[in-house]
Write a protein that binds this DNA or RNA. Structure first.
Length: 480
RNA sequence: GGGAUCGUCGUCUAGCUUGGUAUGAUACUAGUCUGGGGGACUAGUGGUCGCAGGUUCAAAUCCUGCCGGUCCCA
C-alpha cells in the first residue's frame, strides 16, 4: 500500500461502486467474511445498527409492539404452505440437509423470512378476539443466497433486519397498522439518517410474494439508482387461511384474521454511506455517529502536553454532561495531520483541535465533517456544540433532499424517457396500470416501477408506453 | 453451460519465459527526533509461494488434477 492507499483512492463521481466498497472497508464498518456474499460487521458499523435499532424499538413499543425471537430453521413443509410465497423465495433458499452424517427427512430452510414460521405459532396463540391485536417484532438475520453482484450492506446473502408480524380482527385495523409502520419508517430514516424517502405502493409485479399489497419507501442514491429502504405489507387473509390463524369474534363466529408484515434491514446503513459520503470517506449524521465529537490535542513537548491534555479533559467532561459522545485521540505516535484524515475517513461529525495557539487565544478550532468547514469557538461557547450537532443533522437532510429533488424528473413521452434513463434518476411518468407495459418498459430500458407515490393515483393522463388512460404516476428508475 | 484471467508475509507486489538462499513497499514492534492536514531516521518481527500429486540432484517457477477469486458471453 502506498501512502495514498490509506485513504479513499477513487472519486465518488468517477467510480461510485469502487468508492462505496472502499469507504465500507477503510472506515472499518465491515469486512468480507470467508464465505462469498457474507460480511462481518465491525464495531463502528454495528453501533450504527444498534443506534437505529434502539430508535425503532422505542417507536415500536409506543405503538404496542413487543419483541420476540424465532429460530433460524424452517422445515420445508412449512415454508411451502403458501404456494406463491414459496415459489418466490425458493431459488434463493439455503437448505440444511444433514445433521452430522445423517440426512434429515424434511429439509430445513435457513429462514429467508419468517412469515410461515411465525404464523404457525400465531395460529396456536390466537383463539379469541381478546387475543387481538397481536403485534410482535423480531430482530434477527435472514438468509437469501445471492450469487452475483454482492455489495456490503446492499446485497449480501445474510442480512440483519427486523421483521414485524401483526394480526388484527379487522381489515381496516390491519391496513391502518401497515400505514402506521410506514410512517415510523419514514420518520426514522429521515430524522436519524438524513435520507429523504418517497412512500407509496409497489406495483402488482413488484409486491411481496403472498401479500395483497406492499407499501414501500424508496430513495434515490447519488449515482441515480433507486434503493428500496423498507417495506410494509398488507397480507389480508392470504396467510391466515393456509396457516389457520383464526379467532372467535364477540358473536362467537369464527373468522380468519387480517395480517401485516414489515421490515427494514442494514441496507439503511448502505444508503446512509452512499447519500452522505464524499471523496474523503464516510460522513455520519450526528444522531447515529458512534463518536460525535473527536478531540485532537496538539503539543510539542511534555510540559505543553500536560497543559493541553488537562484542557482537553475539561472540554470532554463539559460535552459529556450534555450527553455528547466524545473521544480524545491521544495517540502520541501519530501526527495531527494523520489524525485529521483518519477521523474524516471515519466520518465523525465534529473534530475539535486544541493546541498551544488555542490555549493562548482561549478558544478551540472546530471542524465540521459534512462541509469541511473550520472555525473557532471560544472556551465560553463550548456548550454551543450540541446545537451545532443538531444543525449538522438538519442540513444533511436538507442537502440530501435538494439532491433527490434535482434527480427527480417528470416525463410524459416514452422516447424522452428512453433517452434520459441512462443518466439515472427518478422518473415520474403516467402509467395505465397494465403489467404488459410495465414489463416492456423493464425489458427495453432496465427500469422498474419503484413506487407508486400516495396521491399520484387517479390521474387524467396517457400512459407513456401505450398512450391509454393512465391510473397513476409511478416513479420509474433503475434499482439496486 | 461456454470462455478469459488471477491466487506469493496482514495488504499490495517482484520473481515464473530460461528451475538453484523469495523482492520491494506499506502495515506491525522498539527507539530517537518530530507534531496546526496523511513526518523522518535506525533497528526488528512476519511468507510450508491456494491445495494435492508428478518430473528433477533441486520446483514459487515445468506438467496434471482439484479448490478459490474476478471478468466476459449464453
Amino acid at each position: 500500500m502506498s501512502k495514498e492507499d490509506i485513504g479513499i483512492t477513487v472519486s465518488k463521481n468517477k467510480d461510485f461502486s469502487e468508492w462505496y466498497t472502499q469507504v465500507v472497508l477503510k472506515a472499518k464498518l465491515a469486512d468480507y467474511a470467508p464465505v462469498k456474499g457474507l460480511i462481518v460487521l465491525r464495531p463502528d458499523g454495528y453501533s450504527i445498527w444498534e443506534s437505529l435499532r434502539s430508535t425503532f424499538d422505542r417507536k415500536f413499543v409506543s405503538n404496542g409492539i413487543r419483541n420476540g425471537f424465532l429460530p433460524i430453521l424452517i422445515p420445508e413443509s412449512l415454508l411451502g404452505k403458501e404456494k406463491k410465497h414459496f415459489a418466490g423465495f425458493n431459488p434463493e433458499v439455503f437448505w440444511v440437509t444433514h445433521s452430522g452424517e445423517n440426512e434429515v427427512g424434511d429439509r430445513l430452510a435457513l429462514r429467508p423470512t419468517s412469515e410461515t414460521l411465525a404464523y404457525t405459532l400465531y395460529s396456536k396463540w390466537i383463539q379469541s378476539w381478546r387475543d387481538l391485536p397481536l403485534k410482535i417484532n423480531f430482530w434477527n438475520t435472514a438468509l437469501r443466497a445471492e450469487i452475483k453482484g454482492t455489495k456490503p450492506f446492499l446485497r449480501t446473502s445474510e442480512f440483519l433486519w427486523q421483521e414485524g408480524h401483526t394480526v388484527h380482527a379487522s381489515q381496516e385495523e390491519a391496513e391502518k397498522e401497515v400505514m402506521k409502520i410506514l410512517e415510523i419508517y419514514k420518520n426514522t430514516v429521515e430524522e436519524e439518517l438524513g435520507i429523504p424517502v418517497t412512500i407509496g405502493k409497489k406495483s402488482e409485479k413488484e409486491k411481496f410474494v403472498g401479500a395483497v399489497y406492499t407499501t414501500t419507501m424508496e430513495s434515490i442514491m447519488p449515482d441515480g439508482k433507486a434503493l428500496q429502504m423498507g417495506t410494509s405489507h398488507f397480507l389480508g387473509q392470504n396467510f391466515s387461511k393456509p396457516f389457520e390463524v383464526k379467532f372467535a369474534d364477540i358473536d362467537n363466529v369464527e373468522h380468519f384474521a387480517w395480517q401485516t408484515s414489515w421490515g427494514v434491514s442494514w441496507r439503511l446503513i448502505g444508503a446512509m454511506i452512499m447519500t452522505h459520503g464524499d471523496d474523503q470517506g464516510l460522513v455520519l449524521p450526528p444522531k447515529v455517529a458512534p463518536i460525535q465529537v473527536v478531540i485532537v490535542p496538539i503539543y510539542k513537548n511534555d510540559e505543553g502536553k500536560d497543559k493541553i491534555l488537562s484542557k482537553v479533559e475539561e472540554i470532554r467532561k463539559n460535552l459529556e454532561l450534555k450527553e455528547i459522545r466524545v473521544h480524545i485521540d491521544d495517540r502520541s505516535e501519530l501526527s495531527p495531520g494523520y489524525k485529521f484524515n483518519d477521523w474524516e475517513l471515519k466520518g465523525v461529525p465534529i473534530r475539535i483541535e486544541v493546541g498551544p495557539k488555542d490555549i493562548e487565544k482561549q478558544s478551540i478550532v472546530i471542524a465540521k465533517r459534512y462541509n469541511r468547514e473550520k472555525s473557532s469557538l471560544s472556551f465560553t461557547e463550548i456548550g454551543k456544540i450540541s446545537t451545532i450537532l443538531d444543525e449538522i443533522q438538519e442540513s444533511m437532510l436538507k442537502t440530501a433532499r435538494e439532491q433527490a429533488k434535482a434527480n427527480t424528473k417528470n416525463i410524459t413521452e416514452y422516447t424522452e424517457f428512453k433517452s434520459k434513463i441512462e443518466e439515472g434518476g427518478f422518473f415520474c411518468a403516467p402509467w395505465c396500470g397494465k403489467l404488459e407495459c410495465e414489463e416492456k418498459i423493464k425489458e427495453e430500458t432496465g427500469a422498474d416501477i419503484r413506487v407508486i407515490p400516495f396521491g399520484s393515483e387517479n390521474t387524467n393522463k396517457k400512459c407513456m408506453y401505450c398512450h391509454e388512460q393512465s391510473i397513476s404516476i409511478p416513479i420509474f428508475a433503475k434499482g439496486y
